[in-house]
């Protein structure tokens, strides 16, 4: 699973960069518009370790943000799963709050919270929280009738059991959503860094843009992509392992 993810990423990256080089060649563009392969290679050699540090910095914030958002989404999703007034209120609130683009609120957050760790974490968590919440609400609101019916008629149904049944029956969906939200968390952190932070790969990309240096951006994209692919692969492995252990137990 892990090696497949990495392999797929390599294919996508090489196709993308190959397309760029193809355009450069076809239109006879200078290295200022699209850098050549040697330029990208040399930049990679010069900047790899620094950018790797930046990506890991961003990644750490993204993972913490993602964990927080998973916990929040599970909490609110479980509370909002019922067809009660409160449940429907939670759903409406989630749909409405999602309508506000977080990047529009980001500058206000930076003014209030400063341009450090907290703001990046908050934005990362908020960007991946809402899609997660909607998926969790969707999964948790859908009864698994065959199984739940038995516990209901025997009077043994408790809310914890209900959540457990629905989570287990939709574990594959949940794993996919959580794995996908890693991308959102990373993108959220990068956007936050790009807007106002003073650390992380988003900040470095911004500096590279100021310097009109596309080579640096291509190197940064490579490291971001490979890191995310590894992380998503690991999440999927964990999901598969969890399902196995749960089924055995």
């Amino acid at each position: 699973m892990l090696h497949r993810r990495v392999f797929q990423f390599f294919i996508v990256y090489l196709l993308g960069i190959g397309l760029l080089f193809g355009i450069k060649l076809a239109l006879n563009l200078s290295d200022y518009v699209i850098p050549g392969p040697t330029g990208v290679w040399h930049t990679g050699q010069a900047e790899f370790s620094r950018y790797m540090g930046d990506v890991l910095d961003t990644f750490a914030v993204a993972v913490i943000g993602q964990v927080l958002s998973i916990l929040m989404a599970l909490g609110v999703g479980v509370a909002g799963r019922r067809a009660t007034w409160f449940g429907s209120f939670i759903k409406v609130a989630a749909y409405n709050v999602q309508a506000y683009p977080i990047v529009a609120i980001a500058p206000i957050l930076f003014i209030l919270l400063g341009d450090g760790f907290l703001t990046r974490l908050f934005i990362a968590a908020m960007i991946c929280y809402f899609p997660l919440l909607l998926s969790v609400i969707g999964i948790m609101s859908e009864p698994v009738v065959d199984i739940e019916h038995f516990y209901r008629v025997t009077g043994r149904m408790r809310w914890q059991l209900e959540v457990k049944i629905r989570a287990f029956e939709n574990l594959h969906k949940l794993t996919t959503v959580i794995s996908g939200s890693a991308t959102l968390a990373m993108a959220g952190t990068i956007v936050a860094e790009f807007i106002a932070a003073n650390a992380g790969i988003g900040y470095s990309i911004r500096i590279a843009l100021y310097q009109s240096d596309l080579s640096k951006i291509l190197v940064a994209l490579f490291i971001i992509g490979i890191t995310l692919s590894l992380y998503q692969g690991i999440l999927e492995l964990l999901g598969a392992g969890l399902k196995k252990a749960w089924a055995a137990g």
Partner: peptide, 30 residues
């Protein structure tokens, strides 16, 4: 970036700062 747009043909004239021009020349832009 006006210099990029000149090369791509999206613009025929542009305004650029000196550092942009010098960076572009260093990378072979005309």
């Amino acid at each position: 970036d006006a210099v990029r747009e000149l090369e791509l043909g999206y613009a025929q004239f542009g305004v650029a700062s000196a550092d942009q021009v010098i960076r572009a020349l260093a990378k072979g832009a005309s």
